[in-house]
Simulated assay, not measured.
Amino acid sequence: MKTNWFEEKIAQFSSIGGYQKPELIQDSIKLDSNENYVIPKQFQNDIILSARKNSDIREYPLGGVERLINALSKFTKIPSSMIGVGNGSDQILDLILSNFASKQTKILTSNPTFGFFEERCKLYGIPLITIPFSEYMKLDVEDFLKQSKNADILYLDSPNNPTGFQFSKNELQKLVESFNGLVIIDEAYGEFSDYSLSNMVKTQNNLIVVQTLSKSFGLAGLRLGYFIANKKFTDVFMKVLQYPYPLSTITIESGIESIEKFHVMKDAVENIKIERKRIIDTLQKYDTFEVFDSKANFVLFDAHSSYKRVYSALAEQGISIRKLGKIGNHEGCLRVTIGTKEMNSKFLLAIRDLLV
């Protein structure tokens, strides 16, 4: 009997599982997906309204991507020929993996790293060389330098998701400059951190810096990512690998409008940094938790054997955070997004009532 290759493929993909999205809890205070609620909803409504006025969705968005890239060029101060866009940074990473990696390609990264990237590597059968975090949720750059000779691609999310860790700028620059293969630096949370490596692309032809408007600009629902890389790669990516129309007209126009009003994003990021410190400082007062430093818009903490109880108690009060469980030697990790001051206060008050 002829083997049903189609059913075998389905069974193979089913065994992978796929990226696990957070649980949807209706009418909850949503602090589980690293979304930016500090950006005013009215501001976003105004952007969408303006985008609708400037759009005719009966037409394909000819020239739209080019105008968006020009806006990104002014914002990043990087030549437009070195910028490409995608349907979220997820799609950009997926296209890079599916076209530049294979079962013979070895990727060096941290453990843990961005979950979607890990799952995509499983899907394509790409082997990973992973460096675990220390008990203090830090990475040693020397470990990466030692392993770099065994790898073809280096992928690092900087800051890391879910830990919030970021190498010092000098350490990461040293690692990038010494790596002989392709380097992908994922800066999805870059605006909340201490630095960006985007300018290194001007001198490092093997470097791709991936960024997004989902987090800092509060445009997660529009799915708008971009990357910065050398001109040859960017040209091939946008003309050959990328879809003919990767972004909707509404997404393009909304993105342009947001970038032109980037000061709103800058103010929101500063507020998030202040609130991030407040959450870290407050959680550190409780012996129940081990709290890790963060350069992103979230905070990771270990609630040890109490983590399921803490998660459930918060959910019962309508507060949704991310339950992660085991990371390295830490068995009870939870991750909370930095929301508005009011959202954060409700989270901290619930924690206080739970523990005191």
Results as ranks from 00 to 15, higher is better:
L139V: 13
L139S: 09
L139E: 05
L139R: 01
D140V: 14
D140Q: 10
D140C: 13
D140N: 13
V141C: 10
V141Q: 04
V141R: 04
E142H: 14
D143H: 09
F144R: 02
F144L: 04
L145T: 05
K146S: 14
K146F: 08
K146D: 15
Q147D: 09
Q147I: 01
S148Y: 06
S148C: 10
K149G: 08
K149Y: 10
N150E: 14
N150I: 02
N150T: 15
A151M: 12
A151N: 02
A151I: 04
D152V: 08
D152N: 13
I153S: 00
L154H: 01
L154E: 00
L154F: 04
Y155E: 01
L156D: 00
L156R: 05
L156Y: 09
S158D: 08
S158A: 15
N160L: 06
N161W: 06
N161S: 07
P162G: 06
T163S: 13
G164D: 03
G164A: 09
G164H: 07
F165G: 12
F165S: 04
F165R: 03
F165M: 03
Q166G: 07
Q166E: 14
F167A: 06
F167N: 02
F167R: 01
F167W: 11
S168P: 03
S168Q: 10
N170I: 04
N170W: 08
E171Y: 13
L172D: 01
Q173E: 14
Q173Y: 08
L175R: 01
L175I: 11
L175N: 00
V176Y: 07
V176I: 15
V176W: 03
V176M: 12
E177V: 10
E177N: 13
S178L: 12
S178I: 05
S178G: 04
N180R: 07
N180W: 05
N180M: 01
G181T: 03
L182T: 00
L182Y: 03
L182N: 00
L182R: 00
V183H: 00
V183D: 00
V183A: 07
V183L: 05
I184V: 14
I184S: 02
D186G: 02
E187A: 09
A188R: 01
A188I: 12
A188E: 06
Y189L: 15
E191G: 03
E191M: 10
E191N: 15
E191L: 02
F192D: 00
S193A: 15
S193R: 08
S193L: 05
D194M: 01
D194Y: 03
Y195L: 08
S196A: 08
S196C: 05
S196N: 14
L197V: 05
L197H: 09
L197M: 11
S198P: 01
S198K: 13
N199M: 13
N199D: 13
M200H: 10
V201E: 06
K202G: 07
K202S: 14
K202Y: 05
K202N: 03
T203H: 03
T203E: 13
T203F: 12
T203N: 13
T203S: 14
T203W: 11
Q204D: 12
